[in-house]
Amino acid sequence: MSAPAERPRKLGIAAGSGPLPLQLAEAARASGRDVFIVGVKGAAGSSIEAWPHGWVRVGAMGRFLKLFREAGCEDIVIIGPMTRPTLRDIVPDFRGLLLLPRFIKRMQRGDDALLRGVVEFLEDNGLRVIGAETILTSLLAAEGLFTRIAPDAAHQADIDLAIRAAHDIGAQDIGQGAVARQGHVIALEDIQGTDVMLTRVAAKTPHAASTRQGVLVKLPKPAQDRRVDRPTIGARTVERAAAAGLAGIAVEAGGAIIADAEEMTRIANALGLFVLGFPPSRVESLVR
């Protein structure tokens, strides 16, 4: 008699905003995994309620852990954009109150330090945090050109400039993105995120829709835990880059997540932007 097949480990998803949490849930279910989603209030959308789910406010670390444990989750993925909370946003439960001094210190050091604290908390309590790409390998950006339009020599020079800038702010745990235009870095991502940065660029760019100069580059931070908070682009990023008058977007292949690459590519082609995945060796050659 053959041994029974090993039961797939149940997946818990800590969900922020955007389409990625549900894309991941669907991929996990298709692979035979049971799924339970914990939505972060103020970030995750109501669409998670079509799945087994619970809700947690920022700071309620005891409930966060309890929801996953009671659902029988063994592996956890943290995915979807979340704005870094201010102290005013945090409403801790008892467990969160005990952890608050530690997390305040991490908040002062940056987003990556804060997320590492969440990962440590989950793993110290018997859960295993994994990267989203272990469930849905197609999430990671491939190397090469996604679009019909390709960057020219001037765009490539701006990409190099933005790579250096994004690497520098990433090393300081500030952000993951930079915009360069015509040989100048004109915007750096901060804790408010890529969308806010691109809105600032659009506000400073006259006749943005017809300008089409400059590039957005997104990179993983040099020391970050790549299981969480990889740089992410998608259709909305392309639309905001177009509104800011940019010519295209470039990300590190294998280092960034693309939310629905097919839809993103369709919109980029329609709007006349390029999207490029460059090899990690390009970053290494520029910042060493």
Rank of each mutant, 00 (worst) to 15 (best):
G62T: 06
D93G: 06
G59K: 05
L114G: 00
K66S: 10
A71L: 10
F68N: 04
M82H: 01
L114C: 01
P81H: 15
M82N: 09
D112W: 02
L115P: 00
K66N: 12
W55D: 09
L65V: 02
R57T: 11
R84P: 04
R63T: 12
R95H: 10
D75L: 14
V56Q: 03
D93Q: 09
K66H: 07
L67I: 07
R88V: 11
V58N: 05
P101Y: 12
V91D: 07
G80C: 11
P81F: 13
R95K: 12
T86Y: 05
G110D: 04
G62A: 09
E70D: 15
L99T: 01
P85Y: 05
D93R: 04
I90W: 05
P92V: 08
L99E: 15
L100K: 14
G62D: 07
L87S: 03
R109W: 00
R95Y: 05
I79L: 12
L100C: 07
I90L: 09
K66Q: 13
G59E: 08
L99N: 08
P85A: 08
G54S: 15
G80Q: 06
C73M: 11
G59M: 09
F94C: 06
P92F: 07
E74S: 14
F94V: 14
E70S: 12
G54I: 08
A60I: 00
W55H: 14
G59Y: 06
M82V: 13
I90N: 08
L99Q: 12
I76S: 08
F103R: 13
A60E: 15
T83W: 06
